[in-house]
Amino acid sequence: MQTLSLDQPHSRTNTDPGGFTRLPRRAGVSLKPQHYAEILEHQPEAGWFEVHAENYLGAGGAPLHYLEKIRQHYALSIHGVGMSIGSAGGIDPAHLKRVAALVERFDPESFSEHLAWSTHNNEFFSDLLPVPYNREVEDLVCGHVNQVQDTLKRPMLLENPSNYLALEGSTLDETQLLTNIVNRTGCGLLLDVNNVYVSARNLNYNAEEYIGQLPAQSIGELHLAGHSTDDSDPADILLIDAHDRAVCDEVWSLYRFTLNTCGNKPTLIEWDTSVPEWAVLEAEMQKADRLLSSENIRHAQH
């Protein structure tokens, strides 16, 4: 058992021994173009940055230039949003090849994707669509996770989705399915705490029980984000994973629970729409960092 060094709680060497990610066990932030210049000029104290792979697949220009500059100073996570790991029609090999070239170029501390699908018959739906949870999907996703890991020559993290509905033909719990995929492919998990909260509320299950059922040692990264509420039908209030606002109190409290249950994990403040000024993201990041370095958290590193 290793304990977190309290002298240097923000040390970059404080990385996950599990090998799923080399990110520091600190808070990081979604990197957005409107903050490139400010980050480069002031080099704020930030544990790491995360970018969406699909926004950096051009041949050149400002996005890649700034990412290269920022990467010189910070740890980096590349997060795919269009691989369509759950697609029955398979992963687009051309897209995978482009992502692999990006990963090779930037050698990020972590690569992650979603338990979802977004393409079908050569069409991209620009959303993370749900899969039923059963053996057929387990085999399908395991095959695709292996394909990604083989191509990228590194383990990936698989993220739990935000759920708005349940599907017929599901014979496994989401946590069982994720655990089976981890066991069969050697991938890690990206636990999105906001997604757990949103899904648990929408589908009426217990968020803490869900987190307790996951293999803690396989969790390589946590996500925190804000969600919106659709209360147009008071009898069926829905939470929507909008990434457009600050993390709410309930999700902060579920995050504390997660840290206590699973140990310290690199944690992202995710904000994709209505992106605020850097100072707002920085304050959210600092809040997560304070919780990460708090002595109350179980320091066992699984």
């Binding site: 039923p132 708005y164 509905l165 349940a166 599907l167 017929e168 033909g169 929408n202 589908l203 039908d233 009898a235 069926d236 829905l238």
Partner: peptide, 15 residues
């Protein structure tokens, strides 16, 4: 059709 009924009117609203 695989989308399970959540509430009386929630099915297509959720989709």
């Amino acid at each position: 059709t695989q989308v399970l009924q959540q509430t009386d009117n929630g099915q297509s609203r959720r989709f």
